[in-house]
Amino acid sequence: MLESLYQQILLDHSRHPCHHGRPERFDAEAEGHNPICGDKVRVFVTLKDDGIEEVRFEGAGCAISQASASMMTNALSGLSIDDAKAVRAAFLDLVAAAEPDKSSGERVNEELRSMSEVRRFPARVKCATLAWHALARALGEALKGSGGPPSGSVGGGKTG
């Protein structure tokens, strides 16, 4: 059971997270905070004409929250807005729903699928979803701010 949670891929992502660090340029950012464990993650979204150019994150926390954030940035960077929203919904369904939809596993990539075991550790589900909730807020802000073509705003100030 434990081995299926802490798979090598999860450990790798937590040790060497992808798309990690504050970008120079982004359209919106949002913070996720888990008051129970103190984990914090900040997600940055940069848009392009036809969707998401890149999702990045910074923060510190447990292996599950860090790996989930890292896998999220891999999965969503480059996607259209609609596809990104669909992946997010499928992932949340996979790790957090009482009875996940059968198709949810097919609608996410293999990396994200490897996290589905988290659902058997109810106390840890929030760790896995932390970055994804922050992403939803950042994406909402970015789209509100863009109102068409991305603003290309220079990062540094709080958008929200």
Binding site: L2, Y6, C37, G61, C62, F121, A123, R124, C127
Partner: peptide
Amino acid sequence: GVHAHDLATVLDA
């Protein structure tokens, strides 16, 4: 190198 929550999850198992 091990977050407290991960440590507690391993112990819980």
